[in-house]
Structures are given as C-alpha cells and as structure tokens.
Amino acid sequence: MTRQDIEKEVRAIFLREFEVENPEPDVNLREAYGFDSIDAIELLLEIEKFLGSELTQAEKKKAMDIRTLNQIIDYIERLAEKRQATAETK
C-alpha cells in the first residue's frame, strides 16, 4: 500500500462521508471544514475498514489529536507499516 493509495482512499472517504471535496493537505480540518470529533470517529471506523483490522484503544486515542489531512495519511501509513511488520514476523 503506497502513500498515494492511502491519500486516494482518504480523499474518497472525505467526499463520501463528509461531503468535502479535495481538502487541502495542511489546513486545520476543524477550522476549515467544521470537522468535529464525531467525524473523527467516523474516519477511524473507515480507516479500520480500509486496513481490514480493528484499531486498539491507544491507536484510536492517538488519532483524536490529528488536525490535518497529511497527518491522517501519516497516521494510516504508520498503522499499515506496523500491521505489515506484525504479519511478517508471524
């Protein structure tokens, strides 16, 4: 899974779930688009679906401090790497 794949998916989620078309990568989502914590929960559940695995409570809590699109992509990238590393060690 490349960073481009992740970005494409996140943009698709924003359009489908929050009706936000092409959000700017570094703007504060809360200030620019009124993205609230309930939206953040929705996003987390979509990320779980995208990764095909549940997030731990600690991972979820970490996500609640994310502010920008780029931070979301970084977050998913790290989760995907972590899951891949875990799968390889098994």
């Binding site: 609230d36 914590s37 309930i38 953040a40 929960i41 409570q57 979820k60 809590k61 609640m64 401090d65």
Partner: peptide, 15 residues
C-alpha cells in the same frame, strides 16, 4: 460539551 467529546476523552466515553 465539545471539550468532553473531543480528543481521547471521546474514546473513553465511547468505550
């Protein structure tokens, strides 16, 4: 309140 439904506190409430 937004302060209670924002950040990690939100996850605690949902759990």
């Amino acid at each position: 309140a937004p302060s209670e439904m924002y950040g990690p506190a939100m996850i605690n409430h949902l759990e």
